[in-house]
Amino acid sequence: MTTAAYKYLCQFETETGERFFAKCDSTEPTIGDSVSAYPSFEDLAEDRNATTATIAKLLPPLPRMDLPIYCVGLNYRSHAKEARLNVPANPPVWTKPAAALSSPYETIPVSRFCASHLPDWEGELVFVTARECRDITPEDAPSYILGYTIGNDLSCRFFQLPEQSGGQFFYAKAFDKFAPIGPVLVSPDVFKVRDREGPATLVTRVNGVVKQDTVLERDMIFPPERVLSWMSQSTTIPAYTVVMTGTPAGVGIFQKPRQTLKDGDKIEVEITGLGTLKNEVRFEGGQESIM
């Protein structure tokens, strides 16, 4: 499909649990609205089989929700500085499993195990691939991007400590529901990281308090086209793959004093032109003190 088929795209459930896609008028779909709805993303792209349905619950605005989620580390100068790490020559890449995906406005259940190991936030710009790709150049990469949205790369920092898990990323970030994404997918014709009227900013708030605040094009090291090109070298990236592009300074582990997520915390990640991703975390089994 071409990105011209939509400006703002959402996926939702009805009260009866049916799932639909819809073209939205803005970055803020309204629960309770009746919209022209399509049973599949392909139907929306071809403008066929439309019906009318009422939005009861927003889902991640993704054509597929069964693929691994690619993630990028150290992609903001400010975050590399606060972590006291050198900027790498290429984007560090790992994945989260599909089970990590969660929805906008969803209350995220956090187990006692996760709650007890330094849970943290990471507001991120996200893009989604439009078609399968392999060995593409940065110049070709924009034509492979279906759209942009917002993510929160939730992390248990304890498991990133070198003495605990060798400094790896995957285990710390791969827990169920640790990748909320949404609320809408915005066409590249509408959202452009480096070509806007005024700078696009990323702001993360926890319980209304600003924790992260940056201008994307000034702080980001590897733009989406560079990330996608690097990921695709000798690697087949499926259509509709989610890519979380890294986080700026202001994560909890580097706050002074150090901060972690607490039961009932409300996290909002807002990016200019993409809307606001909102989630609450709930510690299902309480929390142990480990440090």
Score class of each variant (00 low, 15 high):
118 L>N: 12
170 F>Q: 06
216 L>A: 06
174 A>T: 00
177 K>F: 10
131 R>D: 11
170 F>T: 09
211 K>A: 13
116 S>H: 14
135 D>I: 00
149 T>V: 09
220 M>E: 06
126 V>A: 14
218 R>M: 01
215 V>Y: 06
132 E>L: 07
109 P>E: 10
206 V>F: 05
126 V>Q: 15
135 D>E: 02
110 V>F: 04
183 P>G: 10
103 S>Q: 07
171 Y>G: 07
198 G>N: 04
163 E>A: 06
208 G>E: 08
210 V>K: 15
215 V>C: 06
166 G>F: 07
118 L>H: 11
109 P>N: 07
148 Y>S: 10
220 M>P: 08
107 T>D: 13
214 T>V: 15
203 V>M: 05
168 Q>P: 03
119 P>C: 14
215 V>R: 10
194 R>V: 04
157 R>T: 08
200 A>F: 00
187 S>K: 11
111 S>N: 08
121 W>F: 11
164 Q>T: 05
175 F>Y: 09
174 A>S: 14
216 L>M: 08
131 R>T: 09
122 E>T: 09
163 E>D: 08
178 F>K: 00
178 F>H: 05
163 E>C: 02
174 A>G: 06
219 D>P: 05
172 A>T: 03
174 A>C: 04
190 V>A: 11
166 G>T: 03
150 I>W: 02
169 F>H: 02
164 Q>Y: 03
167 G>F: 01
156 C>M: 13
209 V>C: 07
127 F>G: 06
173 K>F: 02
109 P>H: 10
117 H>F: 12
189 D>S: 11
166 G>C: 03
181 I>N: 07
170 F>M: 03
192 K>A: 15
185 L>F: 11
161 L>K: 13
132 E>S: 15
174 A>N: 05
187 S>L: 12
147 G>H: 02
194 R>L: 08
176 D>A: 04
118 L>T: 07
165 S>P: 00
220 M>C: 09
108 I>V: 11
176 D>P: 01
188 P>F: 07
162 P>L: 03
205 R>G: 09
192 K>Y: 11
157 R>D: 11
107 T>H: 10
187 S>P: 12
192 K>V: 13
165 S>D: 10
143 S>N: 14
116 S>N: 15
108 I>A: 05
